[in-house]
Structure formats: C-alpha cells, structure tokens
C-alpha cells in the first residue's frame, strides 16, 4: 500500500538579517491511515513541519524537500489553485485557538456550508443538511442553534468543535491538528479528543497530532516523532513509550508533575548540543 503522505528530507529555513534560521532540518517520515504524533518544545520545528505540509509556511520562509507528496500529488510542485482545491477538501488543519481561526463576522453554519460548497457541487439545502449532520457528529447537542451563532457567541470548546466540523465536513484524507486542545479546559479537552478520535477512526483518515505534551500525544496516537532543534531525535510506537531510549524523550516524559506522585524537585529536561547535530 502506498503511504498517504511521504515527507523526505524536509527543511524549512527563514532568512533573517543575522543569518539563516533553520526551523526544520531534514525531517523524513511516511504516514498511512494512522495517527501520528509530533512532539517537541516550542522552537523544535513541530508546527513548522505541519505548516510546510499544508503549504502554509509564511513568507519569507523557504521549504525544501527531496520528496513531499500526498496520495500521489507532488506538493512541492503544487500551484496555488491545486492548493486551494486540496486544502479543506483532502487536507485539513485544526489550529490551537478557534478564536483566531474562525471568521468572526460569519455564522458558524455559513462557514461550514461555504467550505462545503467551495469544494463540492452541492445545493444549499444539501450543504445545510450536511453541516448540521457534521455539527451533530462533533456532539453539539442543538446543531440548529449553533448553526446560526457567531464564533464569539460560543465557548472555546464549542468553537473548537465547530472548527473540527468545518475541517472534516468535506471528508479529508489527512488531518493535521496543531495543539488542538491546549486552549481548552481539561474536561472539555477530553471530550474534544474523544470526538476527534472517533471521527478519525470512523472515517479512516490519517492524522498528524502536534503537541508539546508527550503524554497527551502518546495516549492518542499510534506512533510518535520526537523533535528537537528541527530534527527528529526519536521515533517510536506509543506502545513502546516506556522503552524510549533517547534521553530527550525520557526527559519529556518525566518532567510533568503527576497526581499522586511526590518528586521534589521535578527532573528537569536536559538539552545537549550534540542532539541537535
């Protein structure tokens, strides 16, 4: 089976006045219809990797790769119009804060139907019907009401659900979620993760879950890439997390305080230069 996404030797660089910043340096991986986690601290290049796959690297960033293809489409050679067709319909991305990624002057329902009608030739009624269905699928109890609300009128958790509904309404093959629940409360976080988990499984899409929280990612994904200073330092199946060998991965695992554990002081993450090499 050919992989859904192939990333070969991906690098993202930003030229600045004081020299070139290498945000991502030679990242390679393949993704099938599975759940892949990318973990790292801020500045590790995890979000830049996700953005590069979506073709959303902000200028003046430069994306280079030996291979970057998504189910047979060469993303490196994609034209803006190919990108527009792909994004939202076959490739989708969920960002951290729904406040910034939903259009504040459009109702949630309209945003979902617009996305749908942009990519598929469906009637208004059909679009509305599918949008409501999708809102129901993200466990919004009264989709009719939420459909006609503006983003500022809903809570963060509801907004993120609407965002997920909007992103999944066209049935994408790959979903990239960049810290999708960091802005949410713990109990809401769980619900949103549960919804995401179910949809990804039911629809059989590929998922890239980007987060700084290794435990969260490992509880959610099949496989984890640990990034440090723009590189992948370790790749492992979540089942083998306990057997992580790289000291950086171990450090990430150990540094969060856990309930019912008394470790004073907490072990602190080491960062060694040679890991970045």
């Amino acid at each position: 089976m050919t992989p859904l996404l192939t990333v070969g030797n991906l690098s993202v660089t930003y030229p600045t006045r004081t020299g070139i910043i290498e945000a991502v340096r030679g990242v390679s991986f393949e993704l099938g219809r599975e759940r892949l986690g990318i973990v790292g601290e801020s500045g590790s290049g995890k979000s830049q990797t996700g953005r590069a796959i979506m073709g959303l690297t902000p200028p003046p960033g430069i994306v280079r790769a030996d291979a970057l293809s998504f189910s047979g489409v060469d993303l490196l050679a994609a034209t803006p119009s190919t990108w527009r067709d792909m994004r939202g319909s076959r490739l989708a991305m969920i960002l951290q804060d729904p406040k910034f990624s939903l259009n504040p002057v459009m109702t949630i329902g309209r945003q979902i139907t617009e996305t749908l009608r942009h990519h598929e030739n469906v009637s208004k009624r059909e679009a509305r019907h599918r949008a409501l269905e999708m809102l129901e699928a993200v466990q919004i109890s009264d989709p009719e009401r939420v459909f006609s609300l503006y983003p500022h009128e809903v809570s963060g958790g509801m907004g993120q659900r609407a965002m997920i509904a909007m992103m999944l309404v066209c049935g994408p093959e790959l979903l990239i979620a960049d810290e999708p629940t960091s802005a949410l409360d713990v109990t809401v976080q769980l619900e949103v993760l549960g919804i995401l988990d179910r949809l990804v499984r039911d629809k059989g899409m590929g998922l890239i879950f980007i987060s700084h929280d290794l435990r969260l990612v490992s509880s959610f994904c099949d496989r984890v890439l640990v990034m440090y200073a723009g590189r992948i330092v370790e790749e492992l199946a979540t089942a083998d997390l306990g057997g992580a060998t790289h000291p950086y991965t171990r450090g990430l695992l150990d540094c969060t305080p856990k309930i019912g554990e008394s470790r004073h002081p907490l072990p602190v993450l080491e960062r060694r230069k040679e890991w970045a090499a």
Binding site: T256, L266, L269
Partner: peptide, 15 residues
C-alpha cells in the same frame, strides 16, 4: 509554557 520548561519554573518556585 512548554511542559519541559514548566518543570524548571515549578522547581524554581518551590526552591
């Protein structure tokens, strides 16, 4: 803060 930086700050606060 990142989970990894959080540990450092928490340790500092305790200390």
């Amino acid at each position: 803060l990142d989970a990894s930086v959080q540990a450092e700050v928490l340790n500092l606060l305790e200390e």
